[in-house]
Design a protein around this nucleic acid. Structure first.
Lengths: 258, 258
DNA sequence: CTTTATTTGGTAAATTTTACAAAATAGTAT
DNA sequence: ATACTATTTTGTAAAATTTACCAAATAAAG
């Protein structure tokens, strides 16, 4: 979706390839060294930022569509994706003063009255987590910027995206002990200190260092290796890795704790 | 939606009033005296049953639309409603052999090729709970039957509605101790035995009668009255009622237990 | 007053969660 | 070698929560 031809096709025949009236918005969380960020984009000639989103191809499942949208912005495939809520209040996505005329001007294509893109849209929220240090965010054709923002220094977002972020965070934190979140966020082999920092950051609170390993090991998705890593003039920590078999099982079924 | 005129309007101009490509399906659970049922409908001249559903008016929020759909089938207003998941796999709602011609015949109205109703639809799942003994199910114009089915004697359902029921049950059971579910299912004043039976039935498992009241009272949404009820040649049980103030607070905010 | 059926309240045991500190170790400096 | 610094690692007691389990109270009928 870069050439003028493609943009024209999107506006004028997109409704044939995509399901109109429905979009997906993605809260893409980024973690790295005790920092939690979220990926935001803008919309050309609209003041303010919002979550990246997109439409669903008529051949895709919802999760496939969300995966494609996330990949388009981050370049990363196969991220852990979870649906968290669907948003559909009337007027939730209207931009004051935006119309087909303005759109035509902004995108340099002819956009007729009643273009499919201007109609009411219901949006399905997904969240994903990746390592922001490995991601060079790519704006979509509708936006100029695509950047990581610190989770506790977010500006007010457009549309109902403030609420989306709140719900995404809430769901992610609820699911942290029920789904195997962490692969892609840590090196293949990692120390307890590293995964401890990850969980503290994602949850936004302190976790007792002596109790954390017990709880974590109890989940059963990571295993201790008989290897240590050299970290300079300190005791060498053991390495751990995710147990692929149990990890994939947990991905499908969730981790039942109750 | 009963007259031929209204049906004609629905098929031919419905896309103006409703958001096309998006529907809501409702898992309406019914409880009464230790029995858990679910409301199913059929579709005219289609073999099999499914969840009742409908479209979203362009002026409605998702929850308002779900409330209207539930009210249309049950006659009950203001039921507790929760969104549980959105379903959108391609082909999820196709009926083998159904086309505009057949539809025209079934409903006795002229339905053109590419009618909005035949296009791919993504469906938002909501669940609700009511007392089935107080409900006379009303079929919609698309169906002949609308009946209560025992939850553990369900037939295979059309479309992806087997999965919907599974997800709805799962979410309802998860939320049972986090939202005040129960008003409308019990008389205004009720005994511990009655609410105990309700919880056992909704959860599908035994709950210790001596521990149950502690947990329940801890939630804080019901209060003990200084009244007893006569139940024949047995000790008279105390009556309880829901604490309206705390109940409504819990409705909005949920009951935080962790 | 005895019997029957049901409600009601309490406590010990088991389990889970929380709180908390000292020993081990790898390298560096002396 | 030895001491020192910074970090990892490990165990246990207390507290809180959940679970298991029964006997006393009571309302009406015979």
């Amino acid at each position: 979706m870069n050439t003028q031809r493609e943009i024209n096709d999107f506006f004028n025949t997109g409704y044939k390839r995509y399901v109109p009236h429905v979009s997906i918005d993605c809260a893409i969380f980024g973690y790295h060294e005790r920092q939690l960020k979220i990926l935001l984009i803008n919309i050309k000639s609209v003041e303010g930022m919002c979550l990246p989103g997109g439409y669903i191809k008529r051949t895709e499942t919802l999760t496939e569509a969300a995966g494609r949208i996330v990949e388009e912005r981050t370049g990363i495939k196969n991220l852990f994706l979870q649906q968290f809520k669907t948003f559909g209040d009337p007027g939730r996505a209207t931009v004051r003063g935006m119309d087909e005329k303005k759109l035509s001007k902004i995108f340099g294509v002819r956009i007729e009255k009643n273009n499919w893109i201007m109609d009411q849209t219901i949006s399905i929220g997904f969240y994903a987590i990746t390592d922001f240090s490995q991601v060079k965010p790519k704006p979509d054709f509708m936006s100029e910027f695509c950047k990581w923002y610190d989770i506790d220094q977010l500006p007010h977002l457009l549309f109902d995206h403030d609420e989306m972020v709140k719900e995404a965070l809430h769901t992610m934190r609820l699911q942290l002990y029920h789904y195997p979140i962490g692969i892609n966020l840590l090196p293949e082999k990692f120390t307890l200190t590293e995964i401890h920092a990850l969980y503290e950051t994602l949850l936004g609170k302190k976790l007792d260092i002596r109790n954390f390993p017990k709880k974590l090991m109890f989940l059963g998705v990571i295993k201790k290796l008989n290897e240590k890593i050299n970290i300079g003039p300190h005791r060498s920590p053991f390495l751990y890795k995710f147990d692929k078999v149990k990890y994939n099982k947990a991905l499908k079924e969730g981790i039942i704790l109750d």
